[in-house]
Amino acid sequence: MTDFLRAMTWVFASLLLILPVLAVLNGWLATQQWPVRRLHVQGEFAQIDEAQVSEAVMPYLEKGFFALPLEDVQRALVALPWVADVHVSKRWPDVLDIQVREHRAAALWGESQLLSDRGVLFPRPAGMRDESLPHFHGQPRDVESVVAMYADAQRLFGPQQRQVAQVRLSGRGSWSLNFRTGEVVMVGRSEPRLKMRRFARSLPLIAVVPGRRWLRADLRYSNGFALKWSAPESPTEREMDNT
């Protein structure tokens, strides 16, 4: 019986020590005694600001310094538009440190996403339109291929005053381009880069046709391409042998 009483006494004493600690760590008591008084926010902000960050974390601060749920704070911040990455930590006695990295948009993607300069797709804010960004279309798995095609097309046509505005890769693997000057290039699936190089070599000759402007080029031919012209008195389709 004596051993039992000793054991119970030890358990009771341990609980007296542990329970207050657990209560503080879980925010059950003394939250006002150890409050978080300062937010230290770091980051280069272009699309978001410190006020948005503060508003997102404010509901969690009432738990106090010890019980502050860092994982929940991080999830709340990552959910903000334009936030790419977040690191949060506590600093004694009353500081919450927050480091935020924003996405930097490199292109529009589809109808509802943006592509970052690190190749990451993220939600596009409602109503956002930025005509200065190229517009890519494809499946998420095609990001690398679409970016590479855009770079190749810019390298081929940029020196000829044809800036690429859109790159589209269809579900069947067919490529097409839109220039900022309005022309459309149907590249197709087979040997797209070979066909673009061939068309780029002919572009200076097409551009100097008097009184005529081409609207669409169809490169889906084995030895040439077809053009649609703007002049109504001209044939709408003309085969050009480019061999």
Rank of each mutant, 00 (worst) to 15 (best):
R168F: 10
D94L: 04
R172L: 11
Q74A: 11
G110K: 11
G110M: 05
V95D: 10
Q74T: 11
R129D: 15
S89H: 06
A107D: 03
S112L: 03
P140Q: 07
D97I: 03
Q154C: 10
Q160L: 14
H135D: 04
A126V: 15
L68K: 03
L156E: 10
D130V: 09
R141Q: 13
E71F: 06
S89T: 11
V83D: 07
R141Y: 11
Q74I: 01
G64F: 00
V73F: 06
G158Q: 11
V146Q: 02
D142S: 13
V164T: 11
M149D: 06
V143Q: 08
R180W: 11
Q161L: 12
W175T: 08
S174T: 12
G158M: 09
R124Y: 05
V164Y: 03
P69I: 03
F157G: 01
L177M: 09
L156T: 09
G182E: 07
L77K: 02
A76M: 03
Q166W: 08
A76Q: 00
V147R: 09
G173E: 06
G158T: 09
P125E: 02
A151V: 08
R104P: 00
V83F: 04
F179V: 05
H135M: 01
Q139Y: 10
Q166N: 12
D85I: 07
R118E: 15
Q113C: 01
R104H: 12
A151T: 09
D97S: 12
W175V: 02
G110P: 03
E144Q: 13
V88E: 06
P159A: 09
S170F: 10
Q74W: 01
S145N: 12
R141S: 13
W92Y: 14
P140D: 04
L115C: 05
Q139S: 14
D130F: 10
H135L: 11
V167Q: 04
S132C: 02
P134Q: 09
K90H: 09
S176Q: 13
L77T: 06
R129F: 12
A148D: 14
V95Q: 15
W82A: 02
L177Y: 01
T181L: 10
D94R: 05
R91H: 12
R155A: 15
M128W: 14
G182C: 03
P93R: 03
S89G: 15
G182A: 07
D94N: 14
A126D: 13
